[in-house]
Design a protein around this nucleic acid. Structure first.
Lengths: 235, 235
DNA sequence: GCAAAAGTGTTCGTTCTACACCCATGG
DNA sequence: CCATGGGTGTAGAACGAACACTTTTGC
């Protein structure tokens, strides 16, 4: 910290705004989906500000909780998004005016926002999405078919997909997108969907089992023709 | 972004302060070193604030340039450090008073700082360290022997070392710590120092050469007994 | 018993590991 | 010619890829 930076600038207006954007990912009908909020100005990612009484990670978890009710999930840091021109003045103006609220060009919210991107993996069947006070809607969108979004929000969502592709090759977190008890064919299909490529069944199964992070349950399921698969649970 | 977050809080004091900390790494005498600044209150990492006219990455590069004169190097993001209690009120008080400057408890600089940690790899022989206006000294310290530092700055420096250990196994960036022309034994010794473990020479050499990122120079060096090594340069 | 789905095996090739060996140079 | 340091080669283990095969179930 260079002291001269703030001694020559008496107030905090010198600093950029800091926000969070949270790409909440679910898996349904063979598709990877993310949760978006609608305002008058289009769709955007869930996000928010960091309160003085909470850590950055607590704020990220709070955003998840506010929109999904979930108190946990698999959270991962994405990236810092901090270009010079990353400001939303027009969007704020139109949004506030649509709610008959005052907007002025000198409002601090018109300044550049540096945002911290995170993603979470959740079980979409556990989620009852809750829209915010100023949202018109909240909905799941396939990552293959995202609507128009604010500023760089679509980039952030797609960045989350790319990061997830890298992460699942090392970590064993993809099962957070499934029920707590799942089968290997389900996990196999999930990985193929995320990676957008075919994976050899045999190799996939051996790799997952040899990781030692799953325990096989004696139960099997009985519904369709064919052999009943084992169920697994993360240890 | 939840609109209610700011509509109920008219000013920016709601937001945490945002800063940068930059772990500038060099390599000398078989040791990995980082550049630290001294104030009355002890040693700390180079860092600073993000100006309204620059992107986050430009600010990171500016910090590097201010302390080392370098306009480039290998920059890598480390992590976000944003615990609730990450504030420096006591340090600011003592520092400002030692310079006969005013300090008040309500100054915004006393609030919590969220900081973005980065590290850079530089050739220590290219650097002429420049201390800041309010620094008493600037110096290279071995990561094995860091002094007492502000708050979590030692953690950030050691985190950079851990991140570097992971990064050099995938990227080919370690040569930024050496001269632009270097030998395989030099690079081998560097990797052993960073990873704090012995690496098989044969395998190391084959791995480096098969990456295709280095070009062999016909020149050799002549000084010590033994065969003269080839020199290499990053493509 | 046949098709479909799940699970396991087999073969081959590549890469990793741990050395051994060869080359170049100064004293 | 030998000690020192640099560079390459080789045998075995481990891992990954591609595909074949066996097991279990519903109809």
């Amino acid at each position: 910290m260079d002291v001269s930076d703030f001694l020559h600038n008496g107030d905090k207006s010198y600093l950029p705004n800091l926000s969070l954007d949270h790409v909440i990912l679910g898996y349904e009908e063979g598709q990877l989906k993310c949760l978006l909020l609608q305002t008058n100005e289009g769709w955007n990612l869930p996000g928010g500000l960091i309160k003085r009484t909470e850590s950055v990670e607590e704020a990220v978890d709070r955003v998840l909780q506010e929109r999904t009710g979930l108190t946990h999930g698999h959270r991962e840091f994405l990236s810092v998004f901090g270009k010079q021109d990353r400001s939303f003045a027009q969007q704020w103006k139109q949004m506030l005016e649509s709610y008959k609220l005052e907007w002025k060009p000198e409002f601090w919210i018109n300044d550049r926002f540096v945002t911290l991107g995170y993603y979470s993996l959740v079980n979409i069947r556990d989620v009852e999405p809750v829209k915010g006070e100023y949202n018109q809607d909240i909905a799941w969108f396939s990552l293959q078919d995202l609507p128009e979004m604010w500023m760089d929000h679509k980039d952030i969502a797609l960045f989350a997909h790319e990061k997830l592709k890298r992460d699942i090759k090392e970590q064993m977190a993809s099962h957070y997108l499934l029920n707590s008890e799942f089968t290997m064919p389900e996990l196999h299909q999930l990985h193929q969907t995320i990676l957008e490529q075919e994976l050899d069944r045999s190799r996939f199964q051996k790799k997952m089992l040899s990781s030692g992070k799953f325990e096989r349950l004696p139960q099997k399921r009985t519904d369709k023709p064919g052999r009943a698969p084992f169920q697994y649970r993360a240890k």
